[in-house]
């Protein structure tokens, strides 16, 4: 039994009373000490998946319509809100896409970390403050005993994201979800933040899900990868297997212009076209309108999983050809 097991998860958003499917049956698992990367273009449903796992969809127009999310063997979707809140921020924590706005501007960062600590642990204010300083040091904020009293606007984006990490780690979660933790940061800072996360994982054994639309980031940091397209996982496998033989045209497109031998297709710099809009139903493989190798079969029939090597699964009728 893995730490987190997501099975056949369906998520839909209600637009004007009509449920539009966004995530259409995805499954994956993450284990202790393991890093899973979820990659895909903007709008494919990555953030929704992570919010669904965290339990943050309440009060939004987004609904989980089917499937199961098990944490440590417990079905999360059957827990009461109260039970979920006991896990949230405690056993399971999340870092968000927007470091500039994810901290409350009116409270000192130390107080925000302390709030998280004291929510789940019976610990004195003084001890919590000491722990907050320790955490800031852990995420390599210079001069933590002073910075603990800073306000968010006094810190850079990279520093704020580290504060977010410190806050997420405050209760020693067993699972950390990082939704595009570095997208809003510039390249050097990106690298530092990612290294920090790997280091922390080595020390604590936390399971991590990193969400990104940058395959490079994923390749460097993750043990396993799931590639999402329009609410489905179109290719999944260990990082090693997957990058050795990318078997889905979409993944190849994401990786930008890897020339394909034995095939007439020149991969374009970026994938042509855009992610189809919500609610637009497509027959067959959802990628066919943008796929350089699509055939009549792709329009007619939805591809199932083809296994390339071990558990490297691909949803493409021509997976074997693309992979070779």
């Amino acid at each position: 039994m893995a730490l987190l097991e997501v099975e056949n998860l369906h998520i839909a958003v209600s637009v004007g009373g009509v449920l539009q499917p966004v995530v259409r049956g995805i499954s994956f698992t993450v284990d202790d000490n393991e890093t899973l990367g979820i990659v895909g273009e903007s709008g494919c449903g990555k953030s929704m998946t992570s919010l669904a796992i965290m339990g943050l969809l309440e009060g939004t127009p987004v609904r989980i319509t089917d499937g199961s999310i098990r944490y440590d063997g417990t079905e999360l979707l059957q827990l009461s809100s109260k039970q979920r809140r006991a896990i949230m921020g405690n056993r399971m924590a999340m870092i968000f896409q927007e470091p500039m706005t994810s901290l409350n501007p009116v409270y000192r960062i130390g107080d925000q970390i302390i709030e998280s600590l004291r929510q789940h642990k019976s610990i004195s204010k003084k001890a919590a403050r000491a722990r907050a300083i320790e955490l800031l040091d852990l995420v390599r904020i210079p001069n933590p005993s002073e910075r603990v009293d800073s306000f968010p606007h006094q810190m850079s984006g990279g520093q704020r994201q580290r504060v977010m990490i410190a806050m997420a780690l405050s209760c020693d979660p067993k699972l950390l979800i990082a939704d595009e933790p570095t997208t809003a940061l510039d390249v050097t800072v990106q690298k530092e933040v990612l290294e920090l996360m790997s280091d922390l994982q080595e020390r604590t054994g936390t399971a991590i899900i990193i969400i990104s639309h940058d395959l490079g980031v994923i390749a460097e940091t993750c043990d396993k990868v799931s590639v999402m397209y329009r609410g489905k996982i179109v290719e999944a496998g260990t990082t090693e297997n997957l990058f050795e033989r990318l078997a889905h045209p979409y993944t190849r497109g994401l990786l930008n212009s890897i020339p394909v031998v034995d095939h007439d297709v020149e991969w374009l710099e970026a994938i042509p076209g855009r992610v189809p809009t919500l609610g637009e139903e497509l027959s067959g493989c959802a990628f066919h309108p943008r796929c350089p190798i699509a055939t009549g079969l792709c329009i007619a029939k939805t591809p199932g999983d083809t296994y390339i090597a071990g558990n490297h699964a691909v949803k493409c009728h021509y997976a074997d050809q693309v992979a070779s």
């Binding site: 943050l56 409350n104 501007p105 977010m164 806050m167």
Partner: peptide, 25 residues
């Protein structure tokens, strides 16, 4: 705002989020 989601992600009670984070701001 995004920081309210952060507050919820800490597992705070909704009333606590409403007063300490939403109302305070």
């Amino acid at each position: 705002e995004d920081h309210v989601r952060t507050a919820r992600a800490k597992g705070l009670h909704p009333a606590n989020v409403a007063i300490k984070h939403v109302f305070r701001n």
